[in-house]
Amino acid sequence: MERIPIHAIDTHDRRFCISYPLHNPQLATSIQKIGIIEPLLLLKRSPYVVISGFKRLEVAVMLKYSSVPAVIHDITDTDAFLYAIHNNRTRGFNLVEKAIAFERMFHFTLSPSNTQDVITMLALQPSEKVFKNLVAIANGEDVLKDFIVTYNLSMKNAEALLRFTPHERKDIIRILSSLRFTDSSLRETLELLILMKIKKGTVDFSLIDHATTMDAIRSILKRTMYPKLTALGKRLQIIQKKCGLPPTMDIKVDPFFEKEYIDIWIRARKEQEVNDAVTKLMDLLKQGYIRSILELSKH
């Protein structure tokens, strides 16, 4: 290990950089306190090229260090790329880093077995679709990359975001960034948005611009994209309200109005409570409410 002056390193050459994001406040605090413990890996060129340690170098430049500890390797570019991946694998890669590493792989002349090793190290599913998505993420805008990393998006949700134009993505990310969401609620929301785009030719962001929760967004989108199903749900609610069921009774209807039957639920501890429930049901039958519910899915 030796100390290399920063001016002897090409700080702009990022051909081996697979770290994203480079800015890491926790690392900066740590280096400020105790300095760089782990040396950088540099490729012996003039000037030196960083193989691994981009984040550390970023902090060192920020802190105006004059030199950094480093280990110099005199190897080919292809080997340097493999070093970069091996050196970072223990900390694990986020989805954007996997995408960057995958995309960079094609800039070097890797043997088929090395290619296979990289795919295994990155824990990638070997499918054309996954590879296509990774290249798109690697070449995507920073707003997209930051969103993927910040919210630790799954490949499915990243793929769903890639279906939009960069401009649309920017709006989606702007709206969603202030909300709390789960992987599944995000997936559902993105699916509704893409359906809107395909069906209507455009995404009307004004509909959801002022929504304050993910649930509100989903509910607005569902109302817009499924007006008939929403109307059926409303009609059911009205009938159920009119039924005035006690808390010990419920009429359960398929949420998609597909099943031919309904479930009538009664909770009873005494014979009298069963009797009361049956009386109530007879009353509902007489008033035609049960028939109205059964007919919801047919007309």
């Binding site: 008939k228 199903l229 059926l232 998609f256 109005f257 597909e258 919801l296 899915s297 047919k298 007309h299």
Partner: peptide, 9 residues
Amino acid sequence: YRYIKNERI
């Protein structure tokens, strides 16, 4: 996936 039932009918 299917169209909503009353539409199918």
